[in-house]
Simulated assay, not measured.
Amino acid sequence: MHTDHRNVVGSDGSVSRVVLAGLALVITGLVVADSLGVHFIIVGLGIGVTLSGTVYLATDGSEWLRIANAFVALVGCQLVGFSGVVRGVGGALVGAVVVSVLYSRVSEGRLDW
């Protein structure tokens, strides 16, 4: 049985660098503490960049599908932070992104266990 070579970091090098930059922002924001609260902005920006880049890399399919999944994941994760019905809507959006990513990988035949 022959297995194809897979690039673990991602097929698109620029997006992989964006994810790594997001992780660097998160680590920098967590290490550096200031009295103005700027580190919270840096951590939030890093989490958003890391999340959207990871969803973009995980989705197989057209460019529009990848961008839409990244955007919906960002919005859904923000809504999960609230309470009540808004949290349920955010959870449903995150679930829809997970289903969309899995469906895109299964339809492309790239989901191997």
Rank of each mutant, 00 (worst) to 15 (best):
H2M: 13
H2I: 11
H5K: 14
H5V: 05
V8A: 15
G10W: 05
D12E: 11
S16G: 15
S16C: 07
R17M: 13
R17D: 09
V19S: 14
V19M: 11
L20P: 01
A21K: 00
G22N: 00
G22C: 01
G22T: 00
G22L: 01
G22K: 00
L23G: 12
L23I: 10
L23V: 04
L23E: 03
I27S: 05
T28H: 08
T28W: 06
S35H: 06
G37D: 03
G37K: 03
V38L: 13
H39G: 03
H39W: 03
F40A: 12
I41H: 05
I41N: 03
I42L: 05
V43L: 04
V43R: 02
G46E: 05
G48H: 08
V49A: 15
V49E: 00
L51A: 15
G53E: 00
V55T: 11
V55R: 02
Y56R: 10
A58H: 10
T59D: 07
D60T: 09
D60S: 12
D60H: 11
G61P: 07
L65C: 07
L65A: 09
R66I: 04
R66L: 08
V72L: 08
V72T: 05
V75F: 04
L79Y: 13
V80C: 10
G81I: 05
F82M: 10
F82P: 00
V85Y: 14
V86D: 07
V86T: 15
V89M: 09
V89C: 04
G90P: 01
L93I: 07
A96I: 03
V99Q: 10
S100L: 13
R105V: 02
S107I: 03
S107Q: 13
E108H: 10
G109C: 07
L111R: 13
